[in-house]
């Protein structure tokens, strides 16, 4: 088992857990958390695919770095909106 296969499976597992929670939870905070876990899972799949015998490919790394920064902006915006909307029924 090479490390990239282990982490490819981990990324897929994180994605599955997050998708399941994203679709079944009614708590806005938990949904934002699930979105973050989903992004981490996809980033891990990208990085595992980028990892080769001659080192890691720089382009997927740059994608993931961009994704992390965009995600924190999205998280802050979503939380501000959720706080403004307040509690609501389903």
């Amino acid at each position: 088992m090479t490390p990239d296969l282990v982490y490819l499976a981990t990324g897929a597992g994180l994605g599955a857990l997050a998708l399941w929670r994203l679709t079944t939870s009614s708590d806005p905070l938990r949904r934002v958390l699930a979105l973050n876990v989903l992004a981490v899972g996809i980033a891990m799949i990208l990085l595992a695919a980028a990892h080769g015998p001659g080192g890691a490919d720089a382009v997927p790394q740059a994608f993931v770095l961009t994704g992390i920064v965009v995600l924190v902006a999205v998280t802050a915006a979503l939380l501000a909106l959720a706080e403004t909307l307040g509690p609501r029924g389903d």
Binding site: P3, Y7, N36, A43, L47, H51, V64, I68
Partner: peptide, 18 residues
């Protein structure tokens, strides 16, 4: 784990931001 995958730049960003 991302350090293990040879991506220390991204690992630093994940630890600090993510």
């Amino acid at each position: 784990s991302w350090v293990r995958l040879g991506a220390p730049d991204v690992a630093l960003a994940e630890a600090a931001i993510g």
